[in-house]
């Protein structure tokens, strides 16, 4: 592959944005040793799981590619790479920081977006139906009522409502 990355088109301030985000402080300590890249337990079966490459992209300033990268959402946060990192980059926490930046910048993975829409519309991830309450009553539990408005306020305050595309 001889694709060319034109660094002048990249965002050189992105790395500073990341180190100022809680969780991203260790980013620049990375010396690209590759410990994380071989640590990820999913890497064996899926080439996308490559923390070193992602960190490289962040340092070079490939902001759009990073924030739209599926890996930051797919990472399950097992902390293996973080534990083994010799330079204390804090990779798992860095993933959180990147997700937070992504959300602030208006990027959200479709799967998260779908979940958000549920929560926004229903106040919870699964719809509360009559069947649920019947079952609860049978077992002597109190009835649940959906708390939609409060959740909506919370999501609006958190700046997440902008991702919701459902008609109200």
């Amino acid at each position: 592959m001889s694709e060319v990355i034109d660094v002048s088109k990249l965002d050189r301030n992105f790395k500073y944005q990341v180190i100022n985000e809680p969780g991203g402080e260790g980013l620049l300590s990375c010396f690209a040793c590759g410990t994380c890249a071989a640590s990820c337990p999913v890497r064996e079966v899926d080439e996308r799981f490559n923390p070193r490459k992602l960190i490289r992209m962040v340092i070079l300033g490939m902001k759009d590619e990073v924030l739209q990268n599926e890996f930051i959402y797919l990472c399950s946060g097992c902390y293996l790479c973080q534990e083994r990192c010799p330079q204390d980059v804090g990779i798992t926490e860095l993933m959180t920081a990147l997700r937070n930046i992504a959300v602030k910048e208006g990027y959200l993975h479709p799967s998260f977006k779908a979940q958000l829409e549920f929560v926004y519309g229903l106040g919870r991830l699964y719809e509360l139906t009559e069947f649920d309450n019947k079952k609860r009553a049978k077992n002597g539990l109190p009835e649940l009522t959906p708390v939609v408005d409060e959740v909506k306020t919370l999501l609006k305050e958190a700046g997440l409502s902008k991702f919701v595309e459902v008609e109200e």
Partner: peptide, 15 residues
């Protein structure tokens, strides 16, 4: 300046 980055296996182009 063009340099090959081994981590990406791509060339970086810098002005």
């Amino acid at each position: 300046v063009k340099v090959h980055d081994k981590i990406f296996d791509m060339d970086l182009s810098i002005v």
